[in-house]
Design a protein around this nucleic acid. Structure first.
Lengths: 220, 220
DNA sequence: TTGCAGTGACATGTATACAATAGAAAGCTA
DNA sequence: TAGCTTTCTATTGTATACATGTCACTGCAA
């Protein structure tokens, strides 16, 4: 077999979580999944253990796996961690990006300004952040950021909406970040990125604020 | 069995890597380990996959697992990432630690000043960093730091020596960090912690500097 | 001597059977 | 009926056999 079954099952499950077909709390039973994928329990088992390590699955009743639920407090920590690491990457990138990368960043910025379609802007936004991530010259921090972003998959699948009002402010923030990077000002870059990420997930604050204090327990 | 075999094998292997009994490049063969542990290949297999995900094992010849080797450049990235995350935790802690925690930090600082035994100081040093880590109120960043520290296990087992000259400067740096935290100055805390971590691993820079440029390839 | 195809061995990948465990539900007793 | 014990079942944990794949080595041919 060219590709290992365990790998493709792992990725398929991630895709389904990302697509919202697998919602938090949904059971992940080895036998059932094995039949669905037409394989034995062994590769399914491996995929589930990898999901657990990636914090996308957890143990439910009877040691069974379920798609991981997260309390809003956990999500808040997760988003904060994501923001801090991306800010760190941006600060490093401000000092280390090559001239070519800096010009590339400006190009993407201009593309974003010229784009009004939310879906297309989302792709441009990804490229913007990718350039910064690779410009930091630290693959460990970069992959750490990727892992943390992966954990928010299920939540984003269920809660994230393209918000056209965010689009305008996002453009402004990107410009601020870019200027700070171009002037190689690491501290300013960090601050700008930090507030950019924070405002991206302002939705979460709303949700947290709306929750009555006694309604605790996993929600997502 | 009260505890899963896979878990105890995983931890035993980590302990052996930490103790330097398993050196980088050493083969980890499922069948061999299964016989040593008196179990079947199945739990060993799971343990090895977990080691691989934790970046402590990698694939060698014929897809076989070996204890992970790291090029000095990888180590440099790893230490940088560790330092940046710990600095971020310190910056957050400066704003968030309770009065009790701040006093506890001072207590540990005094203990460190009064301690001349390198081994005992090492334990005090750990407590100092633990207080900061938990004071940041972000378990995601905290566990991320733990994971990264775990990756340096094999290297530390082989290369780390208690250096009594470092002890004095470490004390000074800890004092600087503590003062910055007590005055709730997040930016200064970050800078102090960043340079503290950097000087802790100054040894690595020496190793990197001594290497001739053409001698590339995994070393540790 | 060099290049390449065939072969063999070693290590992992997968399938399947059986064991163990942990909740849930049923039943029993005060 | 509350609380305890027992039993039962769903699900994972482990053992073992077989399949697959990869690399090294051999031997032959140009």
């Amino acid at each position: 077999m060219a590709i290992r079954a365990a790998d493709s099952i792992f990725e398929t499950l991630i895709d389904e979580i990302m697509a919202g077909q697998m919602v938090p709390g949904e059971p992940l039973v080895e036998q059932t999944l094995a039949e669905q994928f037409g394989v034995s329990r062994t590769p399914v088992r491996e995929a589930l253990h990898r999901l657990e390590q990636a914090c996308l699955a957890e143990r439910g009743a009877r040691r069974a796996f379920v798609v991981r639920r997260m309390a809003p407090e956990d999500l808040a920590e997760l988003f904060e961690a994501t923001g801090e690491i991306e800010s760190t990457l941006a600060a490093l990138a401000a000092k280390r990006m090559s001239e070519i990368e800096r010009r590339k960043l400006e190009t993407v910025l201009d593309e974003g300004d010229a784009c009004d379609d939310p879906a297309a802007y989302s792709e441009i936004n990804s490229r913007f952040h990718e350039i910064i991530k690779s410009g930091a010259r630290n693959s460990i921090l970069a992959s750490t950021l990727d892992e943390l972003n992966l954990r928010t998959l299920a939540w984003r699948a269920a809660n994230f909406r393209e918000d056209s009002r965010r689009l305008a402010s996002s453009r402004v923030e990107h410009r601020g970040i870019t200027q700070a990077i171009l002037s190689q000002d690491a501290d300013t870059t960090r601050r700008q990125m930090c507030s950019h990420v924070a405002s991206s997930y302002i939705v979460l604050s709303d949700i947290l604020a709306r929750r009555s204090p006694d309604r605790s327990g996993p929600q997502f």
